[in-house]
Design a binder for these strands. Structure first.
Lengths: 204, 204
DNA sequence: ATAGTATATTGTCAATTGACCATACAGCAC
DNA sequence: GTGCTGTATGGTCAATTGACAATATACTAT
């Protein structure tokens, strides 16, 4: 599946969000939403169809996500819960999966997300407590200062992440706890940026 | 909600099944499917709108299930999100429902649960922050000291709840914030125990 | 330089579509 | 009987809509 440009992604996401509410937008509505001419949308939609993200329905007000795309982004809602990360294995390896939790559509796309059980209280000021579950979107970019998961020596760490060139700062969120920011000079084999935390939940 | 005739039900179910696949049918398509004239469908759809099962969107190819109906059929993990609680209305009244969120099976049984958006930081020590969503199980007993929702003068309050006979204590969880425990002597019309908080989540 | 891709505009058009009218008939309540 | 509801048909129409042409600009790759 060919990659999309920023604009195309923007349009696709908007369409997706509208469709989630069973509300198929017309090209003119999309155009109005982005401040574009209808035919710019027509063009962009054409690209999305050509690249296989939308099905060619040619029905009025009949935009549909393509099977291929739906398949890829699979919306089951069942996410694997990762326990201890076994040395040397990819994080989503069967061996690491403890159970599955059905989170529905609460946290958006689920195809590349998984759940991590939080240990420790280093992020308590962000409302992430010991025993909470965080939803992680794999390989998602982490905007500076947002919460992400980084794998250091097969240990998964949830922290506020700041990336500058090849350096990483992992900042805890617990003023009272005396935790210190971790600085990493080089991203190497032992340090892996896993993804962005897209949600947090706990059962009571 | 007025009852439907057989034919009307048939049409509604067909529309529902099509919408589930993000494929809004036109009246002509429905007509073709049932071997009817377009205007028979127009009539039937009019009835469905009049009886409150469909929303009156008047957009081309814009059939939508009504909020009311979605509420009644309570699908799987779709929970209503309660906004401001309108005075005098039951908490789950249509007027209070802002949207629906699909939480899957994360927080257990869903038939009698709903979601409340938290305002304020009075429960921050329990990891419930301003803007978080809490899942509330209606009419569920609240074991002493557990987090529950109490309605006081049409204001929903999330607090640790202690009940002793006819007295209630609502204890905040924010040492720093200077919140005080609320004591209520009598459970009366203005004070309603809504239910237990069975979960908390936030989108990041 | 040249070609291709991506984005954007204005204008036009035919197909799709919901709405509405007139009409008809069957069942039911009063 | 009379009126109401529900179902059904055919015909018509204006609004909505996707498609497409002609054109322009910016960027990238060759």
């Amino acid at each position: 599946m060919k990659p999309l440009t920023e604009k195309q992604q923007e349009i696709l996401k908007y369409i997706e969000s509208r469709l989630e509410e069973n509300d198929s937008p017309s090209q003119r509505e999309i155009a109005a939403h982005f401040g574009l001419a209808q035919n710019s949308v027509y063009q962009l939609v054409s690209y999305l169809k050509k690249k296989g993200y939308l099905d060619d329905s040619s029905i009025h007000r009949g935009l549909k996500l393509s099977k291929e795309y739906l398949d890829q982004t699979k919306k089951s809602g069942y996410l694997p819960v990762i326990g201890r990360v076994a040395a040397g294995l990819p994080i989503l390896a069967q061996e690491n999966i403890q159970e599955y939790i059905d989170v529905g559509q609460t946290f958006g796309r689920t195809s590349d997300s998984f759940i991590l059980k939080v240990a420790g209280d280093s992020m308590i000021d962000e409302g992430i407590m010991d025993g909470d579950f965080v939803v992680v979107r794999k390989d998602s970019e982490i905007p500076n200062g947002q919460i992400g998961v980084v794998l250091i020596n097969d240990e998964a760490t949830v922290k506020k992440v700041y990336i500058h060139k090849n350096r990483i700062a992992l900042e805890p969120a617990n003023k009272a706890g005396g935790y210190k920011t971790i600085y990493i000079k080089n991203i190497n084999e032992d340090v892996q940026i896993v993804g962005r935390v897209t949600g947090c939940f706990r059962k009571l």
